[in-house]
């Protein structure tokens, strides 16, 4: 399967994991991002993910390729959901197989961090109050300085 892909239906973790199997691998690390029920003080009821897919595929693949080269792991895959997700659903999955555990953890971490910061994916939060909002940096970047804007917003 492709290094980076999107899914509009529930992620099939077992299948992706099988894809990473390799006789030379001594281990496998994975990360699952779940939809949680709160963010920055607001109660969240569900999320909607949207992507600029043409560019997201390229950038996602670049990230996975970078991670494989940088940490010397055997294989890595990242799959991201798009569409509407409820609390507790799996939004993003990263898996890495490698000879030893240290580089598997490091590559896994690298991929999820870079995906969050670089891949054109957006999420809209729907709140208990009935309001909704795009998770972004509107407030703190308003008339900001030129720093590549990178923020952690959870999820």
């Amino acid at each position: 399967m492709k290094p980076f892909s999107f899914s509009t239906t529930a992620l099939q973790v077992d299948a992706y994991r099988q894809d990473l199997a390799d006789p030379a691998a001594g281990g496998y690390a994975s990360f699952e991002g779940w939809v949680r029920n709160h963010n920055e003080g607001h109660e969240v009821t569900r999320l909607e993910y949207e992507a600029f897919e043409a560019l997201a595929y390229k950038e996602g693949e670049r990230i996975v390729t970078e991670a494989i080269a940088r940490f010397g792991v055997i294989n890595a895959i990242c799959v991201h959901r798009i569409g509407s997700l409820g609390i507790g659903e799996l939004a993003v999955w990263v898996g890495v197989s490698s000879r030893h555990r240290a580089e598997a953890f490091a590559a896994c971490r690298y991929i999820i961090d870079e995906v969050k910061h670089r891949v054109p994916i957006w999420k809209k939060e729907h709140y208990v109050s009935g309001d909704s909002g795009w998770v972004n940096c509107e407030r703190c970047a308003a008339h900001g300085y030129e720093h590549d804007h990178v923020h952690e917003h959870g999820h």
Partner: peptide, 26 residues
């Protein structure tokens, strides 16, 4: 045309442009 670009790149007829708000994957 589906590749990150610079703000001062010369545009050409037929180009597809996307302005990308702060991303929030994961």
């Amino acid at each position: 045309n589906a590749e990150f670009s610079d703000w001062n790149t010369a545009l050409r007829s037929g180009d597809t442009i996307v302005f990308i708000p702060p991303v929030a994957g994961g």
